[in-house]
Nucleic acid binder design. Structure first.
Length: 389
DNA sequence: TCTGGGGTCCTAGGACCC
DNA sequence: TCTGGGGTCCTAGGACCC
């Protein structure tokens, strides 16, 4: 069973800001003039062609009367946790796969529940509504892909069940672009080869498909077109990366400014690593030039760490040449980001570590305790503030 | 229209090793 | 002297998802 909240960001904002309740044209993502994209649009705004992922500026032109709000991650997270609690009550295995969606694995539970899957879905929907005030759509299917497509099909505020044996026929009505895993690029490439619909793939002999798209992709396409997909839910164990990035209001061409932001982003990443009991084995610096060319530079760390300074020093070493390269192209910097990768659980401190490092670790612990009580912004490295400020 | 922020997974080339 | 085949690890970029 796949549960998908309807216009999640928009509806959470309405819950938190009563003055938005009756605003029909509501767009979440940022202020009208911001350099961002639409996170979520109300169903009213969608009638004007506004879609998530669309630049805010474009949305403002399509729907000038709309109200634009930024939204608050903390509220999304709280609502998401409430939804998780509901789905966990109804299945032996349940995972959220985003803030606004999750799966329930109900295999082998037919004797456990005295009701049909459809009735169970009704219950889940009612309980989510009671717990959060939010509406959702639910898809039921023999595998994850079918359940997900079915919830899409059900939107908004409905339930769609695809029973075992119906997968192929259900998939036959879809475009290839509707299959999870086929994004804009792949859809375009397939269209150029004359493939647009699932039914076409179903009707094409494997050999012909292999000549069109290659052996591996042909096998993948056939599997999906037949309506087959994964049936196991596994919750991820360790995260693979922790990152922060920011797009500037205007392109930046002063290293000092980049350096200050890098320090802030690195502090955020390092803080989250410590919060989650993780250390990083490598870092990745990301720069987006004014012309949208994006480069990443990676560096392995001499020892795994979650200390601000030990992440910042190598990040700075990557920034200098990467910034010089942008300057050589006569481009300012549009976006700066830093990611911690090759993550591992924190281990007990080394008995023989240098005294200076012990002090830095203890200082970091103290900073973390202050932040736990008063928030992240309560304490900063002096250089974040810059001179004369 | 002018392009977010947080992630995951895949590919491909090069270094290195046996 | 010019040359295998298999494997792993590293880095960079790209596609995709919400």
């Amino acid at each position: 069973m796949h549960v998908d909240l309807d216009a999640f960001f928009v509806e959470v904002c309405r819950q938190r800001q009563p003055e938005l309740r009756d605003v029909d044209l509501l767009i979440v993502g940022g202020r009208r003039e911001s350099r961002g994209v639409v996170q979520s649009a109300s169903y009213g705004a969608r009638k004007f062609g506004v879609r998530s992922g669309m630049p805010i500026g474009h949305a403002a032109r399509l729907c000038p009367q709309a109200t634009f709000v930024k939204g608050d991650f903390v509220h999304y997270r709280d609502a998401s946790h409430a939804v998780r609690a509901v789905i966990e009550r109804h299945a032996p295995a349940a995972v959220m796969t985003g803030l606004d969606e999750g799966y329930l694995d109900l295999s082998g539970t037919d004797l456990l529940y005295p009701v049909s899957l459809l009735e169970l879905a009704e219950q889940v929907r009612n309980e989510i509504r009671a717990a959060t005030g939010l509406d959702c759509s639910i898809g039921i299917g023999p595998n994850r892909m079918i359940a997900k497509i079915a919830s899409d099909y059900a939107k908004p505020r409905a339930i769609c069940e695809v029973r075992p044996g119906w997968e192929r026929g259900f998939a036959a009505g879809l475009t290839l672009a509707a299959l999870p895993g086929i994004g804009p690029k792949t859809a375009k490439r397939l269209t150029e080869r004359g493939l647009t619909d699932v039914a076409q793939v179903q009707a094409t002999p494997l050999g012909d498909l292999e000549r069109l798209v290659g052996r591996d992709e042909a096998a993948w396409l056939v599997r999906r077109a037949e309506g087959r997909g994964g049936t196991v839910l596994r919750s991820p164990d360790l995260p693979k990366s922790v990152s922060r990035e920011t797009t500037f209001n205007r392109d930046v061409s002063a290293v000092a400014e980049l350096d200050r932001v890098l320090l802030l982003l690195t502090a955020r990443v390092a803080g989250q690593l410590r919060d989650e009991g993780l250390v990083a084995g490598a870092i990745v610096l990301k720069l987006r030039h004014g012309d949208f060319v994006t480069v990443t530079r990676r560096r392995a760390l001499s020892a795994p760490t979650a200390l601000d300074g030990e992440l910042l020093a190598p990040a700075r070493e990557l920034l200098a040449p990467a910034f010089a390269a942008a300057r050589a192209r006569r481009q300012g910097i549009r976006l700066l980001g830093i990611a911690a990768v090759r993550l591992a659980p924190t281990e007990a401190p080394d008995l023989f570590e240098a005294p200076g490092r012990t002090r830095r670790r203890e200082l970091t612990d103290a900073v973390d305790r202050v932040r736990a009580r008063f928030g992240f912004a309560a304490v900063h490295s002096g250089s974040v503030r810059g001179k004369n400020r």
